[in-house]
């Protein structure tokens, strides 16, 4: 069970969180303008990164907020967590995005 740093509540046990998949997948503002291929990519295509990976979590059994995290998928160690809508610190982005 991981310890996850909620950007609002601080360090909390993984039990309180739900995973939200890859972070920074933006829903197109006007989906009607997207081609079928673009829409399929938005819907279905996700990274399977070995190493630093930007992902979403929700503190569902806490403050309820969605937020983003950069986690090393090889060690399960978090590098940083940050609020939804924010970009990760440039120093840790690496290949995560």
């Amino acid at each position: 069970m991981l310890v996850i740093h909620c950007p609002y509540c601080g360090d909390r046990p993984e039990l309180e969180f739900s995973h939200g998949g890859q972070a920074h997948v933006i829903r197109p503002k006007d989906p009607s303008q997207a081609t079928d291929a673009q829409w399929a990519e938005f819907l279905y295509l996700r990274k399977n990164t070995r190493g630093l990976f930007a992902e979403r979590w929700r503190h569902v059994r806490g403050c309820g907020r969605f937020f983003n995290a950069i986690r090393d998928t090889t060690t399960d160690q978090f590098v940083v967590t940050y609020r939804a809508g924010e970009q990760p610190p440039a120093s840790v982005v690496g290949g995560a995005l």
Partner: peptide, 13 residues
């Protein structure tokens, strides 16, 4: 409606 969740997907062949 111009959009709703799922609308664009319904346009796929």
């Amino acid at each position: 409606k111009p959009d709703y969740v799922g609308k664009r997907a319904l346009e796929r062949p």
